[in-house]
Design a protein around this nucleic acid. Structure first.
Length: 490
RNA sequence: GGUUCCUUGGCCGAGUGGCUUAGGCACUGGUCUGCAAAACCAGGUACGGCGGUUCGAAUCCGCCAGGAACCUCCA
């Protein structure tokens, strides 16, 4: 299947036709989470966006190597013990091993990504497992003269780099503005310029995570890990680098600088950035403390949530906006998404009930093209979803006998609906959870007992007995007591 | 302060030079129904403000207003 894909490349600030470096293969690197907190709605966005991208590429028969890292070193030391309640905090008086924190939150991240039906990447490397590779890059940059040592730490010399290469090509920043505008922070006196960034940091005595190096016992700078791991698993130049817009500067800019010095070229051909999810018009993020975790969404356990929302509702909600637009959180919007998704799911189930006929009254081919065109146009999932709702309309009309379809076309149409909804958008038809079913059973039984009680009040003994006897046949025992009837399962 | 970006109907959210009245949710009328629900049919409301370019602009340009992201860890 040869379909052209267009991708918005942040580097050129325009949509470009996607052409992979190696025919039939795609190398994709996406910045993953720093695992020191529970995953929140913001984390779901890049995960879903690039899950969608890899699903599409694979469907179009590319062999995709999708690398998404886990950042487990760099900024952990003080955030490790953010307990929610005092008891939990007390339990952590004996500080946890950083790797315990990392392990715990990595597990949590995986659990919630799985619930969102996000496929596991091909490789999920960790920064702490690639210290050697990072040190190799530092040595390389030092040899080439674009980094300097200062008090046991190594900094990248941005000013020098900018004399030979353009710094700021991704973010559109100008180094002179940066130098004059960057805030001066404490502890930066080691740097020649405040725009310089750390490749290696000497560890303070209290810092637990530390590795030996030619320069000091310390740990690698944050920007370096992605350069090291993408190079190791995808090579010096790969196809697509993804991540949140908030990583554009300085993180991705620094990656480009590091790779340009070390390898002689920028790491990726296409740079894709997903936009932020906002709450009340503001970015939902850790520093603002206004984030809602995925667990809270799934349980409804948060002040700002009217109710619980299922993982698929969250996924659908995110897919209903284009990945480069901000998306504002709101209960109304979420409930609209929930209802819309239900409508879609019901129609998909009803696909099985459609009778075939001797002719087809709408164009399957046109439907197919519209769907492909939408998703191949820089992952325009909102348009694809709109097209799927056209499909829903067709399904309902077919069921109502208002339109017709031949059995061949029906088969094709079914496959297309399932392809786009399930395989590409990743909207699985989640089974009603056992828990939910169980709690509903209680309500249903109470309803039956209430009906029986009403019948008894009306001396409608036939109905009352019928309810009791039929329940008995199904294995339920109805027990009449002074306080009313109760039931139990035999 | 610098850089970049956004502002679409009751809500969310596509579109980007001329007929897309996108789509979802909500709403209104009708068909169906014992009554509902679902479904189907029909319907309304929009492009922040002011100027300009153009035969024609929500879409291009300028100014103004409001908002956001980044410049420090952040998806």
């Amino acid at each position: 299947m040869t379909r052209e894909i267009f991708i918005y490349n942040t580097l050129s600030r325009s949509k470009e036709k996607f052409e992979s470096i190696n025919p039939g293969r795609v190398g994709l690197y996406v910045c993953g989470p720093t695992v020191y907190g529970d995953p929140h709605l913001g984390h779901a966005r890049p995960a879903i966006t690039f899950d969608l991208l890899s699903r599409l590429l694979r469907h179009l028969e590319y062999k995709v190597r999708y690398v998404r890292n886990i950042t487990d070193v760099g900024h952990l030391e003080n955030d490790a013990d953010e307990g929610e309640d005092k008891i939990a905090k007390k339990a952590k008086l004996d500080e946890l091993e950083p790797m315990e924190v990392v392990h715990y939150y990595t597990d949590r991240y995986h659990d919630y990504m799985k619930m969102l039906n996000i496929k596991s990447p091909s490789i999920e490397p960790r920064a702490s497992g690639h210290i050697i590779e990072q040190q190799e890059i530092i040595k390389n940059i030092l040899e080439k003269g674009y980094a300097y040592e200062s008090n046991g730490s190594i900094y990248f010399d941005v000013k020098k780099y900018n004399q030979d290469f353009p710094y700021g090509i991704l973010s559109g920043r100008n180094i002179d503005d940066l130098i004059s505008n960057t805030r001066t922070l404490d502890g930066q006196s080691e740097k020649r310029n405040n725009v310089d960034f750390a490749l290696w940091k000497k560890a303070a005595p209290e810092h637990i995570m530390r590795w030996p190096s030619p320069w000091s016992d310390g740990f690698p700078g944050w920007h370096l890990e992605c350069s090291a791991m993408s190079k190791k698993y995808l090579g010096e130049q790969f196809d697509i680098h993804g991540g949140g817009m908030d990583l554009l500067f300085p993180h991705h800019e620094c990656e480009i600088a590091q790779s340009t010095v070390a390898n002689g070229n920028a790491p990726a051909k296409y740079w894709m950035h997903n936009n932020m999810i906002t709450i009340g018009g503001q970015k939902m993020g850790k520093s603002l403390g206004n984030f809602i975790t995925l667990e809270q969404f799934f349980t409804g356990n948060h002040d700002k949530l009217d109710k619980a929302y299922s993982p698929m509702t969250i996924r659908f909600f995110i897919l209903q906006a284009h990945y480069r637009s901000t998306l504002d959180f709101g209960n109304e919007a979420l409930q609209a998404a929930e209802k819309g998704l239900n409508k879609l799911n019901e129609a998909l189930l009803n696909l099985e009930k459609i009778p075939s006929s001797s002719e087809t009254s709408f164009s399957i081919e046109e439907f197919e093209n519209k769907c492909y065109n939408a998703i191949c146009d820089d992952l325009n999932s909102p348009i694809l979803i709109a097209n799927l709702f056209d499909g829903v309309k067709h399904i309902n009309n077919l069921l109502a006998g208002n339109s017709k379809i031949t059995s061949n076309d029906l088969e094709h149409f079914k496959n297309l609906m399932m392809l786009f909804a399930n395989e590409i958008l990743g909207l699985s038809q989640e089974e009603k959870s056992e828990e939910a079913t169980h709690s509903k059973l209680d309500e249903v039984m109470n309803l039956l007992l209430q009906l029986r009680s009403d019948a008894k009040t009306n001396k409608d003994w036939n109905t009352a007995d019928k309810i009791r006897n039929e329940l008995q046949n199904l294995g339920f025992v109805v027990k009449d007591g002074a306080e009313g009837a109760t039931w139990e399962l035999k």
